[in-house]
Amino acid sequence: MNENKELDCHKFQTKVNDLLIRHRSILDILTKYQESNSRVNRSVAKTVTNCGCLEVTATKKEIPQEARLDELKNYTETHVEGGLCDNCREIVEMELGNNLFYVAALCNILGLDLQEVLEQEYKKIATLGRFNLS
């Protein structure tokens, strides 16, 4: 099996802790995390505006008042058409990875276990199912 397929949250979080030297302040981490969020957004926007491999076609969707919760997916869509080209995929993945780095760094500074955060969120959404509308 590919070594990267065996990577888990604990190994990732430990490596982030080992590598984060310069920006260990909670304020640095929060602002770097916010910056990385912006870079993710920008990289996705550029797939539309610079490359064109993705298109965004968004219009208001009418949802009938009598629609049941389990039918809502039938009335919504992603508004994304196309697919990431190899170049854009590489950039978006890089920016998402950077974002995950700062999520792990934030967990480290706050004494949280990223794996536990992930597991708790999974349990919550698995339990609440479609009622998890957050």
Rank of each mutant, 00 (worst) to 15 (best):
M1N: 07
N2D: 14
E3H: 09
N4T: 08
N4K: 12
E6N: 06
E6R: 07
E6Y: 04
E6D: 04
L7Y: 08
L7H: 07
D8A: 02
H10R: 00
H10W: 02
K11I: 08
F12Y: 15
F12I: 09
Q13R: 03
Q13D: 05
Q13G: 02
Q13Y: 03
T14S: 07
K15F: 00
V16A: 05
V16N: 05
N17S: 15
L19P: 01
L20K: 05
R24V: 11
S25N: 10
I26W: 05
D28W: 06
D28I: 04
D28A: 14
I29D: 03
I29Q: 01
K32V: 01
Y33D: 01
Q34V: 12
S36N: 06
N37H: 06
N37Y: 09
S38T: 13
S38R: 13
R39H: 13
V40D: 03
V40K: 01
R42F: 06
R42V: 07
S43N: 11
K46P: 02
K46L: 13
K46D: 14
T47I: 01
T47F: 00
T47H: 05
V48C: 07
V48S: 05
V48Q: 12
T49D: 10
N50H: 11
C51D: 11
C51A: 11
G52Y: 03
E55K: 15
E55A: 14
V56G: 03
T57G: 07
T57C: 13
K61N: 13
E62F: 04
Q65S: 10
A67N: 06
A67L: 04
R68G: 12
R68Q: 15
L69Y: 10
L69F: 09
D70M: 08
E71A: 05
L72E: 04
L72D: 00
K73R: 15
K73Y: 13
K73W: 15
N74F: 10
Y75D: 11
T76V: 13
T76G: 04
T76W: 09
E77T: 08
E77C: 06
V80E: 08
L84D: 03
C85Q: 04
C85P: 03
C85M: 05
D86P: 10
N87K: 14
C88E: 06
R89A: 14
E90A: 14
E90C: 08
E90W: 02
I91M: 01
I91K: 04
E93D: 12
E93M: 07
M94W: 10
M94Y: 14
M94C: 11
E95D: 06
E95L: 02
E95K: 08
L96D: 01
L96I: 08
N99D: 06
L100S: 12
F101G: 01
F101T: 02
Y102L: 00
Y102Q: 01
Y102W: 15
V103S: 01
A104L: 07
A105K: 02
L106T: 14
N108W: 03
N108A: 07
N108C: 10
I109H: 04
L110Q: 11
G111C: 01
L112R: 02
D113P: 03
D113S: 09
Q115H: 08
Q115I: 00
Q115P: 01
E116C: 03
E116S: 09
V117S: 08
L118S: 15
E119K: 02
Q120P: 00
E121G: 07
K123M: 13
K124S: 08
A126S: 11
T127E: 12
T127W: 10
G129I: 14
L133I: 15
S134P: 00
S134F: 10
S134K: 13
